[in-house]
């Protein structure tokens, strides 16, 4: 039997969910026997998201054009997409700029002009630095999601309890405090 093609991606998030994933400790070794890591910021060095991925963990919210392009591609090429952590599920902290209502402008100005120590200027490099979207969105508002795994970050136990059934071809039961508590 072919190994399960496994990927993780990191959109607008703090990478805390990926750190929690690394907290899986020795289960990572078991996991490595069962899956091929075909794309991941922490697990492999491939630059292009391949076709025919079985399972992908999506950390982070959709905040810029790069995120959007990647998640569209990931959705088209992936069987089971898991919203991984509160940023992916609710847009969480990255989305707090949505309260400011005027798109990305207020945060950019605050960060690059008002708080600049020297040489204040707004970043603008088309094709190199992706433009921010007007609103930061949870992933399921952009593409359909198969499994939601909340948590900021989800604990290693929760990640394991979600992945283990999937690796055996079963659906994880996302119920109860251990599995779906936010925060």
């Amino acid at each position: 039997m072919d190994k399960i093609k496994f990927a993780t991606i990191w959109l607008a998030g703090c990478s805390g969910c990926h750190m929690s994933f690394l907290d899986l400790d020795e289960f990572l070794i078991d996991l490595a026997d069962l899956v091929d890591v075909v794309y991941s910021p922490v697990g492999c060095d491939l630059k292009d998201y391949p076709e025919g991925v079985d399972v992908c963990l999506v950390e982070g919210a959709v905040a810029n054009e790069d995120n959007l392009e990647l998640i569209y591609q990931v959705r088209r090429r992936t069987q089971t997409l898991i919203a991984f952590g509160d940023c992916a599920v609710t847009a969480n902290v990255p989305a707090m700029r949505n309260m400011l209502r005027e798109g990305a402008k207020p945060v950019l100005e605050r960060g690059y002009l008002e708080l600049a120590d020297e040489n204040p200027h707004l970043p603008h490099a088309p094709g190199i630095v992706p433009e921010l979207l007007d609103r930061v969105l949870p992933v399921h508002e952009v593409v359909p999601i198969d499994i939601f795994m909340p948590g900021c970050p989800p604990s290693a136990d929760r990640i394991r309890a979600t992945l283990e059934p999937l690796l055996q071809g079963q659906q994880p039961a996302m119920v109860g405090r251990d599995m779906i508590k936010f925060g």
Binding site: V89, P138, F148, M149, I180
Partner: peptide, 17 residues
């Protein structure tokens, strides 16, 4: 939210100020 099994919101977040 845990009791009713809510793992995400199907409704658009409104981000009021």
């Amino acid at each position: 939210a845990i009791e009713v099994g809510m793992d995400h919101s199907r409704f658009t977040y409104r981000f009021p100020d």
